[in-house]
Design a protein around this nucleic acid. Sequence first.
DNA 1: GCCGTTTTCGGCCCGACTGTTTTCAGTCG
Length: 571
Amino acid sequence: MTNSEIAAMLYEFAELTDLEGDVFKRNAYRRAAQSIEELDGDVAEYDREGRLESIPGVGKAIAQKIAEMVETGRSAKLEELRSKFPPGIVELMKVPEIGPRSLVRLHQELGIKDLEDLRQAALQHRIRSLKGFGERSEENILKGIAVVQGQGGRMLLGDALPIAEAIAAHLRAGGCEEVSVAGSLRRRKETIGDIDLLAGSDEPLRAMDRFVSYPRVASVVSRGPTRSTVRLADGTQVDLRVVPRDSYGAALQYFTGSKEHNVVMRRIAIQKGFRLNEYGLHRRDSGEMVAGAQEAEIYRTLGLDPIPPELREGRGEIEAAGEHRLPSLLRLEDIRGDMHVHTVMSDGRATMREIAEAAFRRGYEYIGVTDHSRSLHIAHGLTVDDLLASVEEARQLTDELGFPVLRGAEVDILEDGSLDYPDEALAQLDYVIGSVHSRFKMDRRTMTERVMTALSNRELNILGHPTGRLIGRREGYDIDIEQVMDEAARRGVALEVNGFPDRMDLSDLNCRKAIERGVTLVLDTDAHGVEQLDNMRFAVGTARRGWAERKDVLNALPLDQLRRFFRVAGA
DNA sequence: GCCGTTTTCGGCCCGACTGTTTTCAGTCG
Ligand SMILES: Nc1nc2c(ncn2[C@H]2C[C@H](O)[C@@H](COP(=O)(O)OP(=O)(O)OP(=O)(O)O)O2)c(=O)[nH]1
Ligand SMILES: [Mg+2]
Ligand SMILES: [Mg+2]
Ligand SMILES: [Zn+2]
């Protein structure tokens, strides 16, 4: 069983325990599940070595359950819990506004077993007969069912951020003094559940009016003096929180999350004799507010170094902040050039010249252009002759513009691990990215072997989108990514952090793992048009979430050092 | 169920909004 399969079972324990009525036990299962999900290394290994209880949130009882799962693939206790509820409960738990308490009563008192039962009960007005439910409850349930059935899961960061920024601009134009994007967007998570915005205003009602009057708002889910929730026409949920300006920093801390980060922060506040909420940090005894306007002050007053939003996931950042060992994170300004950009020669929309000019305008010091290789017919992969001709074109352009245009290629890693051009042709290029674009369904050993073979090619400098996942569409291929990381580190091959919003590959956690293993990262966009050069901010966000510093990143180096990396690679 | 520089028992983050309530439980952020 994989870590994520075990984590999924623990999350299921959490949900079922919630139905049983014990929220503390639920939280305990969730914490353990998150630990397993993000564990560096195989849980089965922890089990074999008797180290399960060293995992945060895993004690005797959960360790025993994990051991059973690892050894048998099942959990007797989980099956017993499942049998207490109908299978349709899984769907029912997704209905907004219906929580565990309502669900148990709907099941016990009305015999509701699945979404269709619930819909019928609401339509036939049978729900209002329950104590505590009424007409509005039935309406909300019907709306909730429509939401579950209509929703397409989480959005991509790249889709959500522009929407959020547009609404923020709408609020500013309406007189809100301070507006920030908060929640998972501010943390630059690769997928976004909803859009969270914060406004600091001494006229909260005006801010709320402005918010719900945004043209794309389709319905108002809830509306109060400090918080409102709306739904846009496409179903996207947007939350706005409004606080007095004195509380802006504390509110930003709260609303940026993550929830897990907040819970730890508030626990530390308690330990140090404070109370922390979205209005400020207060002394417990006197109630005196000691920080609130500035977010960084909340952290400092608790004895912590201010923590960048991208790190706030409850992954050890608070402990690190207390010991003054937070990383000095990479910044967008540290990136000196993009390294993965397609031109019109293959499946891009811009010419080499247009890309070079756009790169220069962005303030880059160099640009790398890369087209697909000959086997990738659907993307108009280049023949050897076209590739070599483009090397000359890059050279001329460099001279003409006085701006270094590096000619690379995104070369297919073929089924046997060889690269899709002869070595003599590759040697003519400034650098080579190797990517898997075909035959994804190999077994783990074969796929790992395939990529290891590619890494052993001395012409290879960068491994492109190393896991091959497409968010929301395709799992990454089955590969031993740790082994690949170790080999890449040993051979001086950089691993890509592809900032295309549905790739984000390496992911945040894989970046962190790679850095710990001594891998050099390269951040790029995989742009197919010059406007997509903006995706660099997503690559940077992901790398920051992976605790990356400037020194970990190849294209944060000046040109001469970049070239040196390419020369010594494979040596 | 987990956990411990004040504890091995008794806590476990804290607040807004809704609907149905006659004082608050449930759900969500
Ligand atoms: N203290 C505290 N803060 C919470 C809790 N739930 C949510 N928050 C804060 C932190 C979250 O980042 C922020 C926004 O909530 P969301 O539910 O939108 O979560 P978030 O944006 O992190 O993830 P998402 O992508 O929307 O699923 O509100 C909670 O239970 N306690
Ligand atoms: Mg959110
Ligand atoms: Mg939200
Ligand atoms: Zn590719």
